[in-house]
Design a protein around this nucleic acid. Structure first.
Length: 538
RNA sequence: CGGGACGUAGCGUAGUCUGGUUAGCGCGCCUGCUUUGGGAGCAGGAGGCCGUGAGUUCGAAUCUCACCGUCCCGACCA
């Protein structure tokens, strides 16, 4: 929101009116403008307008933009650098658990998608369909689709059916199992309400697909991958997550069960950050994935699929960022240390730059989180303050400013992004020795802060009145900030789930793992096998 | 896809109700000078067919209609 608007809302008057009526108030007004601008880099703040704040953070950090194609974003270098780090870390974890990468087609024949009834129901509404193979100019010179395909092709919204088709060829004997495959790909889901990183028509993800000889083994696989995701979310994204299972209503179309990780954003809404599905024999029956067992009997395989997407970046943004912009956890930051030369005088410039380059080289020789420290010397010809704030908005974990006086004293001026960019001087060698500890401390602090926030806004609730109270906005002008995670006893009757959705716009996010203390359903008074987590969600 | 709000320079916006000089302003950008441990100051400058297309009118950023896009709410979803 522009300052003029804030001013007009706060004082009920407009700048233009002020100009002619009262120049003293105008002066006061611009004074506030200056203060407001210096207070934080992102406007509006989270408190003022959370969805708009999110957009502004993405823009200020130069992560991504909308494009001429509705719902499709361009991921810019800083954002893509984060994705590359996410991808590399996960890829390593998948390989460590025995999976191999492959690549399957972008296009899926319509008939394939049709094979699994529930699957079709789930995705039919959001498919991009290719019906023609070329363009021909009409009499006005306008290109028109021509060469209609015999069978339309669907741009993959997910790949179970096409991969199943290929798996059916590859699996013949129990000796071929387990088959453990992953692919890194783009998928398309024609979304009606796109939002950068959180919900776009095209997005990047990985999808793991496996076949097993028994249900038990397949179920174990989904559990294992859920824990890989949870481990990654907490240790890399510094994003605490609930591990749990989806209710039938929230399950993946075609799955027997869906496991998920759920995170709490700063507006206290839940974000589904990863899912892992036990598909039973639904897809192996639909696709013909059969194998001969030890006793020679032919059986259908038991399959799983699991995925995380660029949505994780949206989760990262909404977990850690503040009113000065993005905050990137050190493990994922494309640049972990930004070295900013301060060159007030021409005659010392060369020395300062040289010192910065030297520090950069030395830091790159160090290892943090099992990889070399990622350092960048920002020697662009920009004023110091301007340059510093750009890095704050990008969320770089550490800024190191070095000027002529530091050269004399052997000091550096270090800013920690997780402490709101608070800066302090320290000895150069001390910084050099502790950079690893600093980055680890930031990583830990971000997680601890997020975990404390999640805990603060998670509540055991045992009466319907209290539950409704919890999800009723205190201030109807900012309804998005209220509630949080409510842990309630529920008898698993679908009608109550529907009622929650209708009355409060909240859903059962998950049945947390290991939640087995019986209680009394707060709707029916019947018995409940354990608490479930209820929240508003993205 | 339903309801609402909104589209004016890279970003944020005034002007629209009540049609009428050359469409203002802030940030950013370019040039020069001055500054220099800090999101600089002064001076000058570039950048808009006012979302697109029709219509009403002597005249449209302003009124009417359609379309496109953005944001919010709903349905849907990683």
């Amino acid at each position: 929101m522009a300052f003029e608007q804030i001013l007009s809302k706060t004082f009920g008057i407009q700048i233009r009116g002020l100009e002619s009526r009262n120049s003293q108030i105008l002066t006061l007004g611009y004074g506030i403008l200056k203060m407001a601008k210096q207070k934080n880099a992102i406007s509006p703040t989270r408190e003022q307008d959370y969805p708009e704040w999110y957009q502004q953070v993405v823009r200020a950090a130069d992560l991504a933009e909308n494009t001429p194609v509705r719902g499709c974003m361009v991921i810019k270098p800083w954002g893509y650098g984060i994705w590359e780090n996410i991808r590399d870390a996960l890829d390593k974890m998948f390989k460590e658990t025995g999976h191999k990468n492959a690549y399957f087609p972008l296009f899926i024949p319509k008939s394939f998608l049709q094979r699994e009834a529930e699957h079709v129901d789930g995705f039919a509404k959001e498919c991009a369909v290719v019906t023609h193979s070329r363009l021909e100019a009409d009499k006005d010179g306008i290109l028109q689709p021509a060469g209609e395909l015999d069978e339309p092709l669907i741009v993959r919204p997910t790949s179970e059916t096409i991969i199943g088709e290929l798996f059916a060829r590859w699996v013949q004997s129990y000796r071929d199992l387990p088959l453990l495959i992953n692919q890194w790909a783009n998928v398309v889901r024609w979304e009606m309400r796109p939002r950068l990183f959180l919900r776009t028509a095209e997005f990047l993800w990985q999808e793991g697909h496996t076949v097993h000889a028994s249900a038990e083994e397949a179920i174990e696989e989904t559990r294992q991958m859920l824990h890989v995701y949870a481990d990654f979310a907490e240790n890399w994204l510094a994003m605490p997550v609930l591990r749990g299972e989806k209710t039938e209503a929230e399950r993946f179309p075609g799955a027997e069960s869906t496991l998920c990780i759920e995170a709490m954003m700063q507006d206290r809404k839940a974000l589904q950050a990863g899912t892992s599905h036990f598909l039973g024999q639904n897809f192996s029956k639909a696709c013909g994935i059969k194998f001969q067992g030890v006793e020679g009997k032919e059986e259908f395989g038991w399959t799983t699929s699991w995925g995380v997407s660029t949505r994780l970046i949206g989760g990262m943004i909404m977990t850690h960022s503040d009113d000065d912009g993005l905050v990137v956890p050190p493990r994922l930051a494309p640049t972990q240390v930004a070295i900013l030369p301060v060159t007030p005088k021409e005659n010392t410039r060369a020395q300062v730059l040289e010192a910065c380059e030297r520090l950069s080289t030395e830091l790159k020789g160090q290892s943090v989180f099992d990889s070399p420290v990622r350092v960048e010397v920002d020697d662009r010809d920009l004023r110091g303050g301007e340059k510093y704030w750009q890095w704050v908005k990008k969320g770089v974990p550490l800024t190191v400013e070095i000027g002529p006086r530091d050269l004399e004293n052997g000091t550096v001026f270090v800013g920690r992004r997780d402490l709101g960019g608070k800066r302090e001087g320290m000895q150069g060698d001390e910084f050099f020795a502790s950079v690893g500890n600093l980055l680890s401390a930031i990583q830990k602090n971000l997680f601890d802060q997020a975990a404390a926030f999640q805990k603060e806004h998670t509540k055991d609730i045992d009466s319907k009145e209290e539950l409704y109270e919890f999800f009723t906005p205190k201030n109807s002008s900012k309804p998005e900030i209220h509630g949080g995670f409510a842990r309630i006893h529920w008898d698993r009757q679908v009608q109550w789930e529907e009622q929650l959705k209708n009355d409060l716009k909240v859903t059962v996010r998950c049945i947390p793992e290991g939640e087995s203390e019986p209680g009394t359903c707060l709707f029916s008074g019947d018995s409940s096998p354990g608490r479930v987590v209820v929240a508003k969600s993205y």
